[in-house]
């Protein structure tokens, strides 16, 4: 699967080098496998982000344990707020949906307050679908007990692949 993903990514890179750039001003057009599909109903457009697209955004990392894994892990990725910023969204709600259709909705306001990370690397490794990849929304649980409750646990959506935001 990982190999497949690598291949898809490489193909996407080749395609992007071929000048097939999407006419989206905010995000670069995907050339590899699409990791995240962003829907903005107000703008009436769909944006697909591949790994490169994600890497073009501001990145951040932190260490923490989670209740679903074993041991301390380093999570690296894009803060959800950065995506919302790029989309120009500062209010309303953001809906996140996983491959298995698990879905959560977070008020934008709270996103800005707590700023969860859309992690694409765990301990420097990409995550496969079997390892809750490719994207996992995580909070720095160990940094503050306020993250250690059901609300934040429920929002910690893994196998994330869709994002819908509306003002």
């Amino acid at each position: 699967m990982r190999r497949l993903t690598t291949l898809v990514s490489a193909a996407a890179l080749i395609l992007s080098l071929g000048g097939m750039v999407h006419a989206n001003g905010s995000f670069p057009d995907p050339t590899g496998a699409v990791l995240l599909t962003i829907t903005d109903p107000d703008a009436g457009e769909k944006i697909a982000l591949d790994r490169a697209g994600l890497e073009s955004l501001p990145r951040r990392s932190f260490e923490t344990t989670t209740i679903w894994t074993e041991g301390v892990k380093t999570f690296e990725g894009v803060p959800l707020s950065a995506i919302l910023n790029r989309m120009g969204i500062s209010e309303g709600k953001v809906r996140l949906t996983a491959v298995n259709d698990y879905s959560v909705e977070i008020p934008v306001e709270e996103v800005l307050q707590n700023d969860p990370l859309i992690a694409d690397l765990v301990d420097g490794q990409e995550m496969s679908l079997r390892d809750k990849g490719p994207l996992w929304l995580v909070y720095p649980y160990d940094s503050d007990t306020r993250y250690q409750n059901e609300t934040f646990f429920a929002r910690s959506i893994w196998q994330l692949n869709r994002l819908e935001a509306h003002k």
Binding site: E70, L129, K132
Partner: peptide, 20 residues
Amino acid sequence: LRRNFDIFYSRISTFREGMM
């Protein structure tokens, strides 16, 4: 099939590894 397999695989892994 592969997607569903991976999802189920992920679920079982979570049960086996997660602290919770």
